[in-house]
Amino acid sequence: MAKLNVNGRVVEVDASPDTPLLWALREHVGLTGTKYGCGIAACGACSVHLDGQVVRSCAMPLSAIAEDQKIVTIEGLSPDGSHPVQVAWRELDVPQCGFCQSGMIMAAAALLAATPRPTDAQIDEAMTNICRCGTYNRVRAGIHRAAGAGAAG
């Protein structure tokens, strides 16, 4: 029985230690906003924050996570969808199908927390998530907009 600190709440997860964090979150904790896209940490749809750093949860087994490490998922990024990245996303209609966007938003929020005013090159480097619908240009614009709104604050 693993203990996880998810979105500020300690939850017990009855899953084998090799279970990736992604599936613990989705199938045991019941938080399905974090998506499965590849299972090999290649697409970023499963991105969550671990102690403030963005990680790809599909390739991170529960055994690698300590009880006191703080996990934040899209559901916990803000209580009411008011994180500046989420607001910018709505203002610019960034998502298309939306399936990759939880991961995009988590990656963008982590980028802005570390780099409040990222350049395009820094965005390119940080945002390696895959979107098949083709929202990249709006993701970039959304990050700049959120940066202007003080996402890091």
Partner: peptide, 27 residues
């Protein structure tokens, strides 16, 4: 006009087929 379905795509609330759950469901 803005899309009608953007908000839930920014909070993880939109339920896709992969996210469906039912009582007693198997995978």
């Amino acid at each position: 006009v803005p899309r009608l379905d953007t908000a839930d795509k920014t909070t993880g609330k939109l339920i896709y087929g992969m996210d469906l759950r039912m009582p007693g469901m198997l995978v």
